[in-house]
C-alpha cells in the first residue's frame, strides 16, 4: 500500500514543525526519515498515523484520502520509541490486542499470534510479562503487536534508540530481513545516518521541518543537494572561504584550491570528505603544509587531526585500512584533498 502526504503543515503553538511537506512512499518500500532532533520527522510519522492532526495538507493511503480519519480506522502499525507494551498483559495478549479489540474468534487469534511469535522468534515466551523481557525482545513484541492486524503500513519511531549498540546492530539486520519477508510498506524515523543507510531503500532527510533531500543512500552520498546533507551524513569537514576568479581561498588566506568553471564569486564553503584527503610526506611538492596534532584509532579507521597552514586551521583526515607508516604527533606533513565540493553561502 503506497503512502502519500501532500503539502503538510503543522504548528505546535508558535513552532512551525512541518513546512509544506510532500512525500510519496511506494508500496513495499522501506523508507527512513532522517534528520536532527526537532526537524519534524517524528511529527510527520504521527501525522501519517493520525496521532497528530495536520493544520493543512492531506494524507493518502493508496487511493484513500485519510486526512480526517480517526487513528483507529486507519489501520497503521505503529512501533513506539519505548515500545509502549501493555505491562499488565503477557506477550501473547500484547500481540493479540489488535485481534481482541476486533473480537476475532479465539482459534484465529491463536493461529495468528503463533505465526507472529515465530516471525519475531519469540516462541516459548508467550506467557512472559514485558517486564521479564530484554530490550531487544520487547522491541520484537512491539513489532509483532503492530503487525497483528495486517496493517497497511508499518511506522516505527526511533525503533532502535532505546537499545544498546550490539542489540541495535543485530535487530537492524533482522528488521531488514523481516521487511523483505512481509513486504509491508514501512517508514521509520531515525537520527542515525548509519542506521538509515543500512536499512532503507530510500532516505528522506529533514531539516527544520522541511524535506532537504530524498533519494537512495547512494544518491544522497554521491549527489548531496546541500552542504547540510553532506554534513549530516558525516565524515565531512567544511572550510569557510571565498571564491574569486578561478580560486577558492580560505578565510585566513593561507589555503587555496582551484575551483570548477562557472562557480560564482563570493563566500563559499569547501566541503572535504575526511577520507578523500591525501596525507603526503613533508617534502612533497604539492599540498598544504600541516603538522600532526593527534591520532585516534577506531578499528580499521585511523583519524589524524592536523593543523594546516600558517593559520593552524584544524583539519581531520581519515586513513582506512593498512596504515603501517602512520605519522606521529608533531610530524610535519602535507595534505591535499582529492575531491572537494563547493557550496555557496
Amino acid at each position: 500500500m503506497s503512502i502519500e502526504v501532500k503539502n503538510i503543515d503543522k504548528h505546535f503553538d508558535a513552532f512551525h514543525v512541518l513546512r509544506d511537506v510532500s512525500l510519496r512512499v511506494e508500496s513495499g518500500e522501506l523508507v527512513a526519515l532522517l534528520g536532527p532532533s526537532g526537524s519534524g520527522k517524528t511529527t510527520l510519522l504521527r501525522v501519517i498515523a493520525g496521532l497528530e492532526r495536520q493544520d493543512r495538507g492531506q494524507v493518502w493511503h493508496h487511493d484513500d484520502n485519510v486526512s480526517g480519519q480517526p487513528v483507529r480506522e486507519r489501520n497503521v502499525g505503529f512501533v513506539f520509541q519505548h515500545f509502549a507494551l501493555f505491562s499488565h498483559l503477557d506477550v501473547f495478549e500484547n500481540i493479540a490486542f489488535a485481534l481482541r479489540v476486533r473480537k476475532r474468534p479465539q482459534a484465529e487469534v491463536r493461529a495468528r499470534v503463533d505465526e507472529l511469535l515465530r516471525l519475531v522468534q519469540l516462541h516459548g515466551y508467550e506467557h512472559r510479562l514485558p517486564a521479564q523481557l530484554s530490550g531487544g525482545q520487547r522491541q520484537r513484541v512491539a513489532l509483532a503487536r503492530a503487525l497483528a492486524a495486517r496493517p497497511k503500513v508499518l511506522l516505527l519511531d526511533e525503533p532502535f534508540s532505546a537499545l544498546d549498540a550490539q542489540v541495535r546492530k543485530d535487530l537492524r539486520a533482522w528488521l531488514r530481513r523481516l521487511h523483505d519477508e512481509v513486504r509491508t510498506t514501512c517508514l521509520f524515523v531515525t537520527h542515525d545516518q548509519e542506521e538509515a543507510f543500512e536499512l532503507a531503500d530510500r532516505v528522506v532527510l529533514f531539516r527544520d521541518g522541511a524535506i532537504e533531500q530524498v533519494g537512495t543512500p547512494d544518491q544522497l552520498y554521491r549527489e548531496p543537494s546541500s552542504a547540510f546533507v553532506m554534513k549530516f551524513l558525516g565524515h565531512v569537514q567544511l572550510l569557510d572561504g571565498d571564491v574569486a576568479g578561478e580560486q577558492w581561498r580560505s578565510r585566513d588566506g593561507a589555503l587555496q584550491l582551484p575551483v570548477p568553471h562557472g562557480l560564482a564569486a563570493g563566500p563559499t564553503q569547501a566541503a572535504l570528505r575526511l577520507h578523500d584527503v591525501d596525507l603526503l610526506p613533508a617534502g612533497a611538492s604539492e599540498g598544504w603544509p600541516a603538522q600532526v596534532e593527534r591520532l585516534h584509532s577506531s578499528g580499521p579507521r585511523l583519524t589524524v587531526t592536523l593543523r594546516v597552514g600558517p593559520g593552524a586551521l584544524p583539519l581531520r583526515v581519515e586513513l582506512v585500512g593498512e596504515h603501517g607508516a602512520a605519522p606521529q604527533p608533531g610530524d610535519h606533513v602535507r595534505v591535499w584533498p582529492r575531491q572537494v565540493r563547493f557550496w555557496a553561502g
Partner: peptide, 23 residues
Amino acid sequence: ELEQAAVCLGATPAQVFWRVILP
C-alpha cells in the same frame, strides 16, 4: 503512549479504558 498504542491497534475509547487504563 499506551493509550495511543491501543488506539493505533484499533481499540475504541471504551476498549482503551477497560483494557488499558483501568488495569
